[in-house]
Measured scan of single mutants.
Amino acid sequence: KELVLVLYDYQEKSPREVTVKKGDILTLLNSTNKDWWKVEVDDSQGFIPAAYLKKL
């Protein structure tokens, strides 16, 4: 599985998104959309702007 590093805090703005903190390491589930990547946070899944993430 691929991991990503969160570069900036992000507060979810819709139920399909997730809240993350700078420095979090998350599992990347889908990066086919260049603007929004799907990640797994704890036991939930959701989208975060790709610009907030860096592949490890």
Results as ranks from 00 to 15, higher is better:
35 D>G: 09
38 K>G: 05
16 R>Q: 12
50 A>Q: 05
4 V>L: 03
7 L>D: 00
53 L>D: 03
26 L>M: 04
36 W>I: 05
19 T>S: 14
31 S>H: 08
50 A>D: 02
42 D>H: 13
22 K>I: 04
29 L>G: 02
35 D>R: 13
1 K>H: 11
17 E>D: 06
40 E>F: 05
46 G>Q: 09
36 W>H: 04
36 W>F: 08
37 W>V: 02
28 L>N: 00
24 D>E: 11
26 L>A: 08
6 V>W: 02
25 I>W: 03
29 L>R: 03
19 T>N: 08
44 S>C: 13
17 E>Q: 12
14 S>F: 10
49 P>T: 03
55 K>W: 06
35 D>H: 15
54 K>F: 11
3 L>P: 02
19 T>F: 06
48 I>E: 01
14 S>W: 11
12 E>V: 15
28 L>A: 02
42 D>P: 07
4 V>A: 07
36 W>G: 01
38 K>F: 15
31 S>Q: 08
26 L>K: 01
27 T>W: 12
12 E>L: 15
18 V>T: 06
1 K>Q: 11
35 D>N: 14
26 L>P: 00
54 K>H: 11
33 N>S: 09
18 V>F: 14
13 K>H: 09
6 V>D: 00
39 V>L: 03
47 F>I: 06
2 E>N: 11
38 K>N: 06
43 D>A: 11
47 F>C: 14
45 Q>G: 06
2 E>G: 10
53 L>F: 02
53 L>A: 09
24 D>R: 09
24 D>Y: 07
43 D>M: 10
27 T>S: 08
13 K>A: 10
41 V>K: 15
16 R>N: 14
26 L>I: 12
37 W>D: 00
20 V>S: 02
41 V>A: 10
1 K>E: 10
20 V>Y: 07
29 L>W: 04
15 P>D: 12
27 T>D: 04
20 V>K: 01
46 G>K: 08
10 Y>F: 06
43 D>L: 09
6 V>R: 00
3 L>D: 02
21 K>V: 07
16 R>S: 12
26 L>G: 08
25 I>N: 02
29 L>H: 03
40 E>Q: 14
33 N>H: 11
29 L>N: 02
8 Y>C: 15
2 E>F: 11
27 T>V: 15
11 Q>P: 05
31 S>L: 04
42 D>W: 09
39 V>W: 01
2 E>D: 11
15 P>W: 08
43 D>W: 06
46 G>I: 15
10 Y>Q: 00
37 W>S: 01
52 Y>L: 09
53 L>Y: 02
51 A>K: 14
27 T>E: 07
29 L>F: 03
49 P>C: 06
7 L>T: 04
12 E>I: 15
46 G>V: 15
52 Y>N: 08
53 L>W: 02
37 W>E: 00
30 N>V: 07
56 L>V: 10
54 K>Y: 11
42 D>Y: 11
48 I>V: 15
34 K>G: 09
23 G>S: 03
21 K>F: 10
24 D>F: 06
24 D>A: 12
42 D>T: 08
15 P>T: 10
49 P>E: 03
8 Y>V: 10
2 E>K: 10
51 A>D: 10
41 V>T: 15
43 D>Q: 13
11 Q>I: 14
2 E>L: 11
53 L>M: 04
20 V>H: 03
14 S>P: 09
20 V>A: 11
32 T>N: 12
37 W>F: 04
39 V>R: 00
17 E>L: 07
1 K>R: 14
1 K>N: 10
33 N>G: 08
27 T>G: 06
48 I>Q: 01
26 L>C: 13
29 L>E: 01
2 E>R: 12
46 G>E: 10
35 D>L: 14
24 D>L: 07
46 G>N: 06
42 D>E: 13
1 K>P: 12
17 E>G: 15
29 L>A: 03
48 I>N: 01
31 S>P: 05
14 S>D: 11
6 V>F: 01
39 V>G: 00
44 S>L: 14
5 L>D: 00
38 K>Q: 14
54 K>M: 13
49 P>K: 04
43 D>I: 07
30 N>Y: 06
9 D>L: 02
20 V>N: 01
54 K>E: 13
2 E>I: 14
47 F>K: 02
51 A>E: 11
25 I>S: 01
11 Q>W: 13
4 V>M: 02
13 K>D: 07
27 T>L: 13
14 S>V: 06
35 D>C: 14
3 L>N: 04
4 V>R: 00
26 L>H: 05
52 Y>P: 01
41 V>M: 10
17 E>A: 09
32 T>D: 14
22 K>W: 04
13 K>M: 12
22 K>F: 05
56 L>N: 02
8 Y>P: 00
31 S>C: 14
47 F>L: 08
14 S>N: 12
21 K>I: 06
23 G>K: 01
54 K>P: 02
51 A>C: 15
32 T>H: 10
35 D>W: 15
31 S>A: 12
24 D>T: 11
16 R>T: 11
45 Q>M: 10
5 L>E: 10
12 E>H: 13
9 D>S: 07
52 Y>W: 06
29 L>Y: 03
33 N>Y: 07
2 E>P: 10
9 D>N: 08
3 L>A: 05
2 E>W: 11
11 Q>E: 13
42 D>G: 15
50 A>M: 05
49 P>Y: 04
17 E>K: 09
41 V>L: 12
11 Q>F: 14
55 K>Y: 08
56 L>Y: 07
28 L>T: 01
49 P>S: 03
46 G>A: 15
46 G>F: 15
27 T>M: 09
3 L>R: 09
36 W>V: 05
46 G>H: 15
43 D>C: 13
16 R>V: 10
3 L>E: 06
40 E>T: 07
30 N>R: 05
50 A>H: 04
41 V>I: 12
7 L>P: 00
30 N>L: 08
31 S>I: 05
19 T>K: 08
39 V>H: 00
35 D>I: 14
32 T>V: 10
11 Q>L: 12
18 V>K: 07
41 V>D: 05
28 L>R: 00
